[in-house]
Design a protein around this nucleic acid. Structure first.
Lengths: 380, 380
DNA sequence: CCACCTCAG
DNA sequence: CCTGAGGTG
């Protein structure tokens, strides 16, 4: 009985699911996953975006965000188009409605049949090549089919024990999802990680994928994670970060030695909701690891050293909570950042903060375009 | 009925209170406070120390701690003997027995009639000129009379609402205490502060005293505080720190302008359990304030930049907790650090951490000797 | 396993 | 006031 609601099949979104049903019926799920060379009848993103806007007519307009070119960015070279990366904790539906206690957000603003269009609209507006999501509890019934019809390959990994499962009308556990455009990348390897802390498995997970960029043949390693939340767990986050870094290191060196030895390391992008301010240990761990990771959003600041003032901003019964928890890490030696999507201002976010009628999550989406730097010159 | 126990008057410590009773009967409390020039019959610290050792025979020996001379310390000049400063959160008796949950510490190790000798032994071993304590819930019945008999002036400030008061067999609220040797200093002014955060009064307090060094006539401002505990309260601690610094600034400039204008600022020492790791905001606030404060214990590290790895180390039901929370701040332009008491090693602390049969508190005592630097040369 | 509440010390 | 323990969605 509740599956009708979970599938989102109400009258207000019949158009979306009309478009969606087409591609689904012409290409069942199994085939999408397996038959990568078969050119499927894909959904037109523009058409889908129009459907979103139609369904969201009663909502206030989504505030505009500028794409900012960081000062000193190297102009893009030909045959080296930028790779667009999006990082977003989309807020689990069960948590948003059930227990997160966003007291200044009307419950109605969180109803899934409409909220999913807000999420989709954001994704479709920017059409990232790599999409990293956290708190996904509508993967199989919503994001997998829709993103597949738009030409994306998707991977989902649920938390071993999700807090969503304790809520009456839940839609299964939440977890991380990683999507990439099949037209842009081919998949070389996937690792589904359960993060450990001091040898013990925790409730947090990560996905790592080794991709090959279709036109250039260059490889790119991408990863997504969602670390333990709340203050008081700084040590656990730090340990999870250490474990994650170690496993990334292992995967990079495994795959690096495979095709060509020592020709510089594989470019790496790590997206995540780290649930940690830049002052925390786990942040320092990431910024000083041997992997050579930099946080992309620092480039938005004038000194290039400062993270945004917030990536999440909400009002709970316990008070207002504004913090910087989400990051896009990239290897600065092999990748350069060409553009960054600006952070909405306090005014754009509004006095009731997030989520709201015009923004579906308590976290702001992060988006940047990165470019491969020149191949390191062979010295022999 | 419970006052007998609270006064510590059991058979095992009759000797201590025998010695104590002498000086008390010959000089009632009011007179100690008022009649500073009258040379009271004082308790001999060595005799008291022997009493402590006798009462603690059944306990394992207290581990030895070295007094370390920081590399590059200026040798002490004549007529400028060092001032010994001790900072210690001694663990409130009610909290230790009642609710702090030190699951690896036998309850027996915390019984007050013995534990107070452990605390006293530590103080008597080093005989500081300035003693800053937190979590004192046996001030009037124990520390005030004993320290007074040893020639100290004491000041106590209870928290407005102490968690001790919620425990069955409590001995009153806990608070901060500040002692100084009457032979070394005379008292010029005392401020009892209730710390505020964003205009609102909090449950945390501080004592600030303006002293005059007896032989040299130089002034010294000393302060003690105990900030809000636990993770999740970083913002409050930072605000409390800001308020504290502002009030210190005010007191320094008030007294500084009084006797001689602009002859360099008054030397300042601030001791406290800040309940904050060096990564926290409130630490940065202190180290970068216009008062020019440095943290003395950084000088114990080889790079002179790093705080000790821990000043408290305990095992609670929620797990092991090792952190650096206590600091001795000093004005580096007017004071130099001559010696520091080393931090006990992990082996000395033992596998069950703190408190224990050989250490009375979950916090390690900090101790350093500071010296006045040369008076700034008068240019006119 | 997570975030809230409430309850007692 | 403050904090652990215990219950609920």
């Amino acid at each position: 009985p509740s599956s009708v609601c979970a599938m989102g099949g109400t009258s207000s979104n019949s158009r979306l699911f009309g478009t969606l049903a087409q591609s689904l019926s012409s290409a069942p799920l199994g085939q999408i996953e397996l038959d990568l060379d078969h050119n499927l009848a894909e959904t037109d993103p523009d058409q889908l975006l129009r459907e979103c806007e139609e369904s969201l007519q009663r909502r206030p307009a989504r505030p505009h965000r500028d794409l900012v070119v960081p000062t000193g960015a190297v102009p893009r070279r030909q045959h080296n188009p930028a790779i667009r990366i999006m990082q977003w904790n989309i807020l689990a539906q069960a948590l948003g409605e059930g227990k997160d206690g966003f007291i200044r957000c009307p419950l109605d603003a969180l109803n899934w049949p409409e909220r999913k269009y807000l999420i989709l609209e954001e994704i479709l507006t920017y059409l990232p090549d790599i999409l990293c999501l956290q708190e996904v509890d509508h993967y199989y019934d919503t994001f997998q089919p829709i993103m597949a019809s738009l030409g994306y390959h998707g991977t989902f990994l649920a938390k071993p024990w999700s807090p969503c499962l304790d809520i009456e009308q839940n839609n299964g556990p939440d977890g991380c999802a990683l999507f990439f455009r099949r037209s842009r990348f081919s998949l070389q390897a996937t690792e589904r990680l359960r993060l450990s802390a001091m040898m013990l498995p925790t409730n947090q997970v990560a996905i790592v994928q080794m991709l090959t960029c279709r036109p250039t043949g260059r490889r790119l390693c991408v990863a997504v994670t969602h670390l333990k939340a709340r203050s008081g767990w700084e040590r656990l986050r730090s340990a999870q970060g250490a474990d994650f870094l170690q496993k990334l290191q292992r995967m990079i060196s495994q795959n690096g030695g495979q095709r060509r030895a020592m020709s510089g390391s594989i470019p790496l992008v790590v997206c995540g909701d780290f649930n940690a301010e830049p002052t925390e240990d786990v942040y320092k761990r990431f910024s000083s690891s041997p992997l050579g990771l930099s946080s992309a959003y620092k480039l938005l600041s004038s000194d290039k050293q400062t993270e945004p003032a917030y990536t999440t901003w909400k009002i709970r019964p316990s008070g207002e909570c504004r913090s910087t928890l989400d990051y896009i890490w990239y290897t600065g030696d092999s990748l350069s950042v060409e553009q960054l999507l600006d952070i909405p201002t306090e005014e754009q976010i509004g006095p009731d903060r997030l989520p709201s009628y015009h923004y579906p999550s308590d976290h702001i989406s992060l988006l940047c375009d990165v470019c491969f730097r020149e191949e390191p010159h062979r010295l022999m």
